[in-house]
Amino acid sequence: AQASVVANQLIPINTYLTLVMMRSEVVTPVGIPAEDIPRLVSMQVNRAVPLGTTLMPDMVKGYA
């Protein structure tokens, strides 16, 4: 199964992502692939992302 990117903490709206904020986990539904974690660093979330939430492409500015 493919691992997705999951929030490792509460990520406030407009926060620039860093490695410590994200982890990879096999979840349903599938979100942003874990292999894209390096690409996500320094990208901004466009909403608050609670701890344990799967990151979806529409949550990250400029990802989709």
Rank of each mutant, 00 (worst) to 15 (best):
M56A: 05
M59I: 08
T15Q: 14
M43T: 06
T53L: 05
G31Y: 02
T15C: 03
V30S: 11
L55E: 01
I11L: 08
M59H: 12
L40F: 02
V60L: 07
S24N: 09
A64G: 10
V27L: 07
T28A: 15
T15N: 06
S4Y: 03
A7R: 01
Q2F: 14
N46S: 15
V30N: 12
A1I: 15
T53F: 08
L51I: 15
R39V: 05
K61S: 12
L55M: 09
P12R: 07
V5E: 02
D58N: 14
E25V: 14
L51T: 10
V60H: 01
I11A: 01
I32E: 00
I37F: 04
T15L: 04
P33K: 08
Y63K: 02
R39I: 14
V5H: 01
Y16T: 14
A64E: 10
T53M: 10
P29H: 05
D58P: 06
A7G: 04
V5C: 03
V49P: 01
Q44N: 07
G31A: 04
M21C: 02
A64K: 03
V20T: 15
N8F: 06
V60N: 01
A48Y: 12
T15R: 04
N46F: 08
D58Y: 14
L19C: 04
I32L: 07
T28C: 03
P33E: 05
V49C: 03
P50C: 04
V49W: 02
A48P: 09
P50L: 05
N8L: 07
V27I: 09
A34W: 15
V41G: 03
P57Q: 10
S4C: 03
K61G: 09
I37Y: 03
Q44Y: 08
E25K: 07
S24Y: 04
I32Y: 02
M21N: 06
T54N: 02
V60A: 02
L40G: 00
S24Q: 06
A34P: 10
Y16C: 04
R47K: 15
A48R: 14
T54V: 08
V6L: 10
A48E: 15
A64D: 10
V49T: 06
R39C: 04
L10V: 09
V5Y: 01
T15M: 10
V45S: 13
S24T: 06
V6S: 03
A1C: 04
P50D: 11
L10K: 06
A3K: 14
V5L: 04
D58I: 08
T54L: 05
M22K: 00
T15E: 15
G52Y: 06
G52D: 12
A34N: 07
Q2P: 13
I13W: 06
V27D: 02
D58Q: 13
T53S: 12
G31V: 03
A64N: 05
A7F: 01
L10M: 13
I37G: 05
Y16W: 12
N8Y: 07
P38D: 11
N14G: 13
A1H: 11
D58S: 13
V27N: 04
A7K: 00
L19S: 04
A1S: 09
L10N: 13
V26S: 08
M59Y: 10
L19W: 11
G31M: 02
T54M: 07
N14Y: 09
G52C: 03
P29V: 04
E25M: 10
S24E: 09
A1V: 12
R39L: 06
V6R: 04
V26I: 09
P33G: 05
T15P: 00
Q2N: 11
V6T: 09
L55G: 01
L55I: 08
I37D: 00
I32F: 03
P12Y: 05
A34D: 13
I13V: 15
Y16V: 11
V41Q: 07
N14H: 14
L19R: 08
D36K: 09
M43C: 03
R47W: 10
D36C: 04
P33F: 12
Q2S: 14
S42P: 02
M56D: 15
N8Q: 07
K61P: 15
T15G: 13
Y63D: 06
P29C: 03
Q9G: 06
L19P: 15
I13M: 08
L19H: 13
V49N: 01
G52I: 02
P50M: 07
T15S: 14
R39N: 13
V49K: 00
T53E: 12
D36G: 11
P50F: 07
N46R: 08
G52E: 06
I13R: 12
L55Y: 01
D58C: 05
V5S: 05
S42W: 04
Y16D: 08
P57V: 05
N8W: 05
P29F: 03
M22N: 00
P29T: 09
P50H: 07
P57D: 08
T53K: 11
P33W: 09
E35P: 07
T18P: 00
V60P: 01
R47V: 13
V49F: 02
M59Q: 07
V20A: 12
L40D: 00
L19A: 13
V27T: 12
V5D: 01
P33N: 15
V5W: 02
L55Q: 01
P33Y: 04
D36Y: 08
T54E: 02
T18I: 05
K61A: 12
V49S: 02
T54P: 07
V41L: 15
Y63G: 04
A7Y: 01
V45D: 01
T54A: 05
N14P: 01
V41E: 05
S42Q: 14
R39T: 13
V45E: 01
S4Q: 02
R39H: 11
Y63F: 10
P12I: 04
I11Q: 01
L51R: 08
T54W: 02
A7E: 00
I32H: 01
V49A: 10
D36H: 12
I32V: 12
P50Q: 12
L40I: 11
V27R: 15
Q9H: 05
P57C: 04
S4P: 01
D36E: 06
P33V: 06
N14W: 11
M43P: 00
I13Q: 11
G31C: 03
G62S: 12
L40T: 01
Q2G: 09
M21H: 09
N46G: 13
I11C: 02
D58F: 08
P12M: 09
Y16Q: 13
P29Y: 03
D58E: 14
V26P: 08
Q44K: 09
P57G: 11
E35W: 13
P50N: 09
V49I: 15
V6G: 01
I37W: 03
I32S: 01
T18G: 06
S42L: 11
I32N: 00
N8E: 08
V60K: 01
Y16A: 15
V30H: 12
N8I: 07
L55P: 00
G31R: 02
S4L: 01
M56C: 03
I13T: 10
R23P: 01
T53N: 07
S24L: 07
G62I: 04
L51C: 03
E35R: 14
N14K: 13
R23F: 06
T28I: 13
L55C: 02
K61N: 13
L19N: 10
T53H: 15
G31W: 02
V60D: 00
L51W: 15
P38S: 05
T28Y: 14
T15K: 09
S4G: 07
M22W: 01
L17K: 00
V20R: 12
P29W: 03
Q44P: 05
K61T: 14
A3S: 12
L40N: 00
Q2T: 11
S24R: 12
N8C: 03
M56W: 13
T15W: 05
L55F: 13
E25Q: 13
M22V: 09
V5A: 14
V6K: 04
A1D: 08
P38R: 07
V5M: 02
P33D: 06
N46V: 11
P29E: 11
Q9T: 15
M21D: 08
A48K: 12
E35A: 13
N46Y: 15
P38L: 07
L19Q: 10
V45T: 15
M59T: 08
M43I: 04
N46E: 15
R23Q: 05
T28N: 11
V60E: 01
V45Q: 00
D36P: 00
V30T: 15
M59D: 14
R23D: 06
R39D: 05
L10Y: 15
V6Y: 02
K61D: 13
S4F: 03
N14S: 09
R47E: 14
E25D: 07
R39P: 03
A1G: 05
D58H: 13
R23V: 10
P29R: 05
P33H: 09
P50K: 09
A3E: 10
T54H: 05
E25N: 09
G62R: 06
G52F: 08
Q2E: 10
T53V: 09
L40A: 01
M22C: 03
I37M: 13
A48G: 10
P33A: 12
M59F: 11
E35Y: 11
T28L: 07
P50Y: 06
M43S: 08
P57K: 07
S24I: 12
T53A: 12
M21T: 04
T53Q: 15
N46L: 11
L19T: 15
V60W: 02
L40R: 00
N46Q: 09
